[in-house]
């Protein structure tokens, strides 16, 4: 008698489990998803812009490239490896990001030791006196989908000047607990305006320096 009742109970349990699996499968069907998305749409359009998040720049995936004209002939590239700082940016790109980026001058990298020493030496950056380059944004105007014309103050070689940079958000990745954001900034500066005049007059080196800065930051919760 007892064994028979037990068998009936197990059968009921199995049926109820099967039923619950079927409900779960039904919830994940495309039709339901579409419906839930439709019903969620009005809420998205009326929702307030996402709150800005603070990202700490990841030095491994950040670099600042520079390009300069040499003796009126070739254009050569160099790179600064040590880039640090913070970016404040809302995930949805509803407002322009703000940047505070510092580049260590001694991290310059041209592929030639002697040229590295020349660039950080007193002829150009004079890194023993001015050890870093800093950019602090002061505003940004949207120019398209997650692209901005950023203005800010660039301090280099002890001189601070306002500059404008074209900035693009190259992506936001991660999940609710871990996020990364990427940016690319392109701008040109006249090095003579920052007191680095060597070779400008006699055209040994160009005055315009094109900068391409790649940034990646980790969300700081």
């Amino acid at each position: 008698m007892f064994q028979r009742r037990s068998r009936i109970a197990r059968g009921l349990l199995a049926v109820s489990l099967l039923g619950s699996v079927g409900v779960a499968a039904g919830l994940s069907s495309p039709a339901l998803n579409e419906a839930s998305a439709t019903s969620a749409n009005p809420a998205t359009t009326t929702a307030p812009a996402a709150a800005p998040l603070t990202f700490k720049l990841d030095p491994v995936h950040c670099m600042a490239l520079f390009r300069i004209h040499h003796v009126g002939a070739g254009r050569f590239w160099g790179m600064f490896d040590d880039v640090s700082g913070t970016v404040v940016y809302p995930e949805d790109g509803s407002t322009a990001p703000t940047f505070d980026v510092t580049v260590k001058v001694e991290s310059v990298h041209t592929g030639t030791e002697k040229l590295n020493r020349t660039i950080i030496g007193p002829q150009f950056f004079d890194a023993k006196e001015f050890d870093s380059i800093r950019f602090v944004s002061t505003g940004g105007k949207s120019t398209g989908d997650k692209t901005w014309e950023m203005t800010g103050d660039l301090t280099m070689h002890g001189v601070t000047k306002p500059i404008t940079a074209m900035v693009e958000c190259t992506g936001v990745a991660g999940n609710p607990v871990q996020k990364k954001v990427g940016f690319e900034a392109i701008f040109t500066v006249k090095r003579s305006e920052f007191g680095m005049n060597w070779g400008v007059k006699n055209k040994a080196l160009g005055d315009d320096v094109r900068m391409v800065v790649g940034l990646e930051g980790d969300w700081v919760r």
Partner: peptide, 15 residues
């Protein structure tokens, strides 16, 4: 110590 006499001009001139 700077890498030898040849290295003195290893970036092709004064710049």
């Amino acid at each position: 110590a700077s890498g030898g006499v040849d290295a003195a001009n290893d970036y092709g001139g004064f710049n």
